[in-house]
């Protein structure tokens, strides 16, 4: 073998080593340093510890996207109802698979699982029942869940956009993630002091046709998983800050949407509150259209209580 061939072979090994090192760096970053994952990992671990100490036979577990994390004050719910309850909500980016894995891990036969999530999350998520989103894969990696090769690769590649934004925040001395340790409350509630005064939505609610079919498919899959474990599943629409002029119209559309779900889904109970997924009370919202303030979360939870109690009596 000539010396130049030998050098080329050595460099090929060097390229391979560089690739392996990149994967290792990506893994270390995703597992230990990615700010959003760190925040949620700490929240999930805290919840797991609380749930580990729980001795009640019956539990109410709330799960879903950030409308759940910022919307359900499980401490208040427990105080008022006398039932053990936990908020295991995450964020939309994590995707349905994380919510399902985490909530079903803690729910036992007879428990009540309340899924609170914006239905647009379910659209094109039907297949996501079997796989993790990028943020979901990062979360699963941090929680030491098993990942497929493609999911692992996705989780360990932060991307230019993410790293540059982080660098920019660091340079401007801004916090690396908008929520911090101080925003976590007992039993899983997240409360933010940030008040960005979001503009109420002026978009009409409409989920019909193939989109509605996808929502049903996702909920049906959830219902099936819960039924296999003997867990009762309910679905509740989150409350969205809505422009006053659209309030009635969107409420009607959402009621129709829920009616349609109720008609065709057998394994999932559909919950309704008087607000029917819309509110124009701006003072109850914090930094996004779906994130309540502490007061908003308490109010939402208290209004939900009689609805859930009625359902619980049926079990």
């Amino acid at each position: 073998m000539s010396s130049s061939t030998l050098i080329s072979r050595r460099w090929l090994w060097a390229y391979l080593i560089a690739l392996v090192c990149s994967i290792a760096v990506g893994w270390i970053y995703a597992r230990y340093f990615e700010p959003e994952t760190r925040f949620w990992l700490a929240a999930f671990q805290e919840r797991r510890e609380e749930l580990g100490r729980e001795t009640a036979k019956f539990k109410v577990i709330f799960t879903g996207d950030s409308s759940c994390s910022f919307g359900i004050d499980a401490t208040r719910f427990t105080e008022a109802s006398g039932q053990a309850s936990y908020n295991l909500g995450g964020t939309r980016q994590m995707g349905m698979r994380v919510f399902m894995d985490e909530s079903l891990k803690h729910a036992q036969r007879g428990d009540l699982l309340v899924l609170i999530a914006n239905p647009t999350l379910f659209v094109s998520e039907a297949k996501a029942q079997q796989r993790y989103s990028k943020a979901g894969a990062r979360m699963a990696l941090a929680l030491n869940e098993g990942l497929k090769v493609a999911e692992f690769i996705e989780a360990t590649r932060p991307g230019f956009n993410h790293l540059m934004s982080l660098g920019g925040k660091f340079a401007l001395r801004m916090p690396s993630f908008r929520y911090g340790t101080g925003d976590r409350r007992a039993r899983g509630l997240i409360v933010t002091s940030g008040r960005d005064h979001p503009e109420p939505t002026s978009e009409s609610f409409e989920i019909t046709g193939p989109e509605l079919a996808e929502v049903k498919e996702v909920l049906r899959a959830w219902g099936k998983c819960c039924a296999e474990k003997g867990v009762n599943l309910c679905y509740l629409l989150p409350i969205e800050l809505t422009d006053s002029s659209l309030l009635e119209k969107n409420r009607e559309a959402k009621e129709e949407f829920l009616n349609e779900l109720e008609k065709t889904l057998s394994g999932v109970r559909i919950l309704r509150t008087a607000r029917m997924g819309c509110s124009d009370e701006e003072e109850l919202f914090a930094d996004t259209l779906f994130h309540f303030t502490q007061e908003g979360a308490t109010d939402f939870t208290e209004r939900l209580l009689p609805v859930l109690e009625e359902h619980m009596q049926r079990f």
Binding site: Y15, L19, E154, G159, F160
Partner: peptide, 17 residues
């Protein structure tokens, strides 16, 4: 070759979704 090494690392870490 050195550029290639650097670019391999960057391709892995910087690719957008």
């Amino acid at each position: 070759r050195v550029s290639c090494l650097i670019m391999i690392v960057m391709i892995y870490l910087f690719q957008p979704t």
